[in-house]
Structures are given as C-alpha cells and as structure tokens.
Design a protein around this nucleic acid. Structure first.
Lengths: 274, 274
DNA sequence: TAGTGGTCTAGACCACCGT
DNA sequence: CGGTGGTCTAGACCACTAA
C-alpha cells in the first residue's frame, strides 16, 4: 500500500502557512483530514458512531494502526470520543463532559480536594451549582463593526444578538451578550430560546447544525456600569470579570462572539496550566 | 517478555482513588511512571537528553513502541520535548515555549490574525511585549493560614514571601504576591532576586531544583484598594484582574501560591478552549 | 459469542541531525 | 556516516460491551 499511497495526496491543508513550500503530510494526518471532512459534512452526526477502525482501515487501504493514530488526534481535540467495546462516537454537547469544557465558572468552595494528577489526567470535576438561564433579548440587526470583524462578516450583514442572564444557585452570575451570524441562524428567536431548556450550544448543534468545537477567550476586569449593575444586582462601580469569547466550528471558522460579564463574589473562573 | 512483565508491577499510582479496587496498569504506563521517577529524582536534569528510545526499550525489556507511547504521554504533559534526529530532552523553563505557558497576559492588539487550527495545533504566538520585573519585597515569615493551606504546610511553618511589580512596555501591569515553602527555598533573598535577570521559574529550577510543571488558577475581578492602586499607578476603585495560582511540581505537590493583580486596560488574559 | 477499542510486539523504512 | 525520533505495517492477544 505504502509505496504508492504515501505520496498520493500531498499537502496537509491544516497548516496553510503562506510562503511555506508545499509540504507532504504523513499518512495518518491525511486520514485525519478525511475523517475531519466526514465530521464537517455531517456524514456522521453528533452522538453517532463513526465506522470501526478496521472498517476505516479497509476503506482507506491503510493499516489499523494508522487509522488509530488519526483518530487519536481527533480524540485529543475532543472532536470524537472513544468507548472501549462500543466504538468511536462524534462528540456532542449533549454530554456533560463536553458542556463544562466551555463553562469555566465555578463556585468558590469547591472543596479543594487536591486531585494531584500524575502526568496527564484531565480531572474534570462537576461544578456543584445549579445554572438557570433567562433570555432578556433576542433580535436581528445589522452587524456592528466589532461583531462583523470578529465573525468574519462584511459590514452591515445580518446578525442575531442575544442577551441573557445566567443565575447560579438563584443568584445573578453572568450577563451574556452574544452575536451570531444571521445566515447560519435563521429562525432563531426569543420564543425558540424560551422554549429551550438545556445548554445553548446543544440548541445550536441540534437545531442549526452548528457545532462549537473551540474558542479563544480574552479576560479583563471592568467596572460595572449602571445598567449592567442593575441586571446583575450588584452595586454600580463593582468589579466584573469580562470574558470575551470568539468560538469557532470546524476549520477554525468563527461563529459566535460572546461577552460575558461575571460576578465573581462567590465564583471564579477556573483554569489549569500545564 | 510480555507474559511475565505484564503483571509484574501492579497499580498505576497515578490515580489513587480511595476505595477503588487495585487496578493493573498497562505496560506503557508503568514505563511512564519509571521515567517520571527519573525526572523527579533528577537522574536527568532540565535541558539534558534522556536515553534514546531503543536504549530505554532495552533497559526495561519492552519494545520500542511501548517506550514510545510512554514518552508520548510525557511529551503531551510538557514534561519532555522531542527533537527529531537529536533526542528527547527534559523540559526546562529556559525555553521560550515553556515560559509563556505560564504567562497568559497579552497585549490587546495582537493583530487578531485568525490562526484557525485544523484539528489540534497549539499555535503559541510570542507576546509582542517587553516584560521587566522589579522586586518590592522579599522576606521570610511564618505561613499565614491561607498560604499554609494552599501549600500543604502546617500552620506556622516558614514561608518566603515575595512582592514584585511586572511592567509591560514600561507600564505597570501586574503586582505579584508570592508565597513559597521555606524549606525548599533556603537562601532565597531580595539580593538573590535582584541579581537574577530572567524568568522566576528558571531561577527556581536552576538554583533550588524546583521545577514548576503545572498550576491551577482562579480568576476574579476585584476593586483596587489604595495601596495596590498606587503601586500599579491606577485610580483607586479601578477594576483589577486577580489571578490566584497554586502551582505544583512532580506528583501534584503544591510549591507556590501566587496572587497576581493585573491591570487590564491595555492587556488581557488569554485562554484557548477546546 | 462476535465486534469494538486497547495493548504489545518486531521489523522495516524515512526524515532529520550532527560529525 | 551513524544515531535519533517519526511513520507504517501485520499480526497477536486482551478488555470491554452488547446481543
């Protein structure tokens, strides 16, 4: 198989560094890109199983080990979940583990029970708090320049904007201001949001076919203005944690701009460095 | 080799879940633990090469592939760096890539040139700013209860505390308040710090044999009190980003408590979710 | 029991690095 | 050139899951 297929497909496509000479990608990366294409195109939907390793190996005419390494990378990127004895499944925001990858707010008294990982365990603890959401506003408008830039839209294109208040254990915790590209989110309305109970990203995934697979966040500390202070029920002039997020779907394409104003009196933003 | 060595060593040690029945670890994890022990004991020092894969395979009497998988995990945890054609090296804070894993502050105008990773590239950009440090204070004292708890010390044990001001491009950016266990940091003094030019963690690594390999951070927004406002040259009542960090060395053992008060007027804390 | 992912091996060859 | 990590293969067996 090798002597032919190795050079059959050139160029990774994942690292389009301008000016770099076209480089050849190892087989398992080429396979990874093929699988990625299947995920992106919806050939396999969130929650479904992808074909078994042996079947994929036969289909692409490579060894199982090579397919395995390709899937390993997809699993490392949380695009796919392996389950021994059952198969490999497309990651979905239906799963709790996925949900809390994007919610970094935690109650302060987390017990601090030192998990102490050996060399590389994830150790995701379930945040012991009840989150409820209340939609304050949802409307369509022409993209403000800032949102257009973040979402890669032309100035004036349609966007959907949402304002919602998250409460943690009954207390106002986060005021979210969200912008979404109008083209991908036709039919998204306040009614639709009110009727939905569950994570926002799960709604996006099931109703609009938009899977959030990653995000870049910029955190700042800001002073609460009058309006935000009121909705969050804190004093004007309080310090708020501003989390600006641009999340993307397959291929790094941005599909959400979000600004979350967080009350960090009894909560904090959790992050692990390694 | 296999029929014997597979069950020769039992129990991972990395996941000491109380009450769980003793479980057997795959060979490559056992090898990983052995290598980890070598790193921890200083058998191979930061910057040095560890033995080659074939040599390790011979030493532990397993196949090269098994050693390889063990090293893969150590590399994924940033404990070790592979260099094709040269060898595998113990990670050191001397390297720039390592340094900025722990410095998440970035200047606001980072160009925002959407890097758009394919499936799982790290894409660490060099923060385009000049950081300089000025030590305000360094003294030894009995651990305040909070620091003792964070560092796992008995109340009243000795700690070293440091206060330092970081300037980014000439402007005050971060006020750090640091606590270190006194036992591990004998001889650390203001003079020693003043004489040092370079990352703090590199000093710890080279002079005290303490390698920071990970940390847990809790972020909050706070209001600047009079004293901190003055040293950071901002108005009293400004919002500051408080980054509380507990960093650890091998085995998850905490060795630093740090509180950083960040001015986020022209900078932000950068984070990537996936 | 059949099918899946998980581990381990042994050997081949490639790409890269320093001498 | 020799040594290192990187890729790929083929086959064996194990651990787990579901029918």
């Amino acid at each position: 198989m090798n002597e032919a297929s190795r050079n059959a497909r050139r160029d990774d496509g994942a690292t389009p560094v301008a000016g770099a000479a076209p480089t050849f990608a190892p087989l398992y990366r080429q396979i990874r890109e093929l699988l990625l294409r299947g995920l992106q195109s919806g050939e396999w939907k969130p929650g479904e199983a992808i074909p078994s390793e042996v079947e994929l190996a036969a289909r692409y005419r490579v060894s199982q080990g090579t397919v395995r390494k390709a899937i390993d990378e997809l699993a490392a990127a949380n695009l796919v979940v392996r389950r021994q004895g059952r198969g490999t499944f497309v990651a979905s925001h239906r799963e709790v583990r996925t949900q809390f990858r994007f919610l970094r707010l935690r109650p302060d008294e987390a017990g601090a029970s030192a998990g102490s990982p050996g060399a590389g365990s994830a150790g995701e603890a379930a945040p012991g708090m009840v989150m409820t959401s209340r939609v304050l506003e949802c409307r369509r408008l022409r993209a403000p320049s800032e949102a257009a830039r973040a979402l890669g839209l032309r100035a004036g294109e349609a966007v959907v904007t949402i304002r919602r208040l998250l409460e943690a254990d009954g207390e106002p915790a986060v005021l979210d201001e969200i912008w979404l590209p109008g083209a991908r989110f036709r039919g998204l309305s306040a009614e639709r949001l009110d009727a939905w109970h569950g994570p926002l990203y799960l709604l996006f995934e099931t109703e609009f076919g938009v899977r959030m697979i990653g995000a870049i966040e910029r955190l700042k500390a800001v002073v609460a203005d009058r309006s935000r202070a009121r909705t969050l029920q804190v004093a004007e002039g309080s310090a708020l944690l501003l989390v600006e997020r641009i999340s993307h779907t397959y291929g790094g394409q941005p599909v959400e701009l979000r600004r979350g104003y967080c009350v960090t009196r009894r909560h904090h933003y959790h992050n692990e460095l390694s």
